[in-house]
């Protein structure tokens, strides 16, 4: 089992959330789960582009009360 890394990027405007994700991804190992929370509406398309490029797995993406939650499984490292 990998580690679960929680990243809080709420209240950060573009490109804050992706910046935080890249920082977390640098430290992550294969099998880790990155759970990121963001409020920037631009985060969703950015994340999808990032997943497509890096080939990691998007396990879950949901939105509740203006907060986007994304769960990513690190598979490409």
């Amino acid at each position: 089992m990998g580690e679960r890394i929680v990243v809080d990027a709420k209240g950060m405007a573009c490109p804050g959330p992706i910046t935080k994700l890249v920082k977390a991804y640098r430290k992550a190992k294969s099998g880790d789960i990155i759970e990121i929370y963001a409020t920037d509406p631009g985060f969703k398309p950015d994340l999808e582009a990032w997943i497509k490029r890096t080939g990691n797995e998007l396990v879950e993406i949901s939105e509740e009360g203006g907060v986007i939650k994304a769960v990513i499984k690190v598979t490409a490292k």
Binding site: C14, P15, I18, T19, V22, G42, P45, D46, A49, W50
Partner: peptide, 10 residues
């Protein structure tokens, strides 16, 4: 560039 687009802001 480390960004999604040519600049952090679209």
């Amino acid at each position: 560039l480390p960004f999604i687009h040519e600049y952090p802001s679209e």
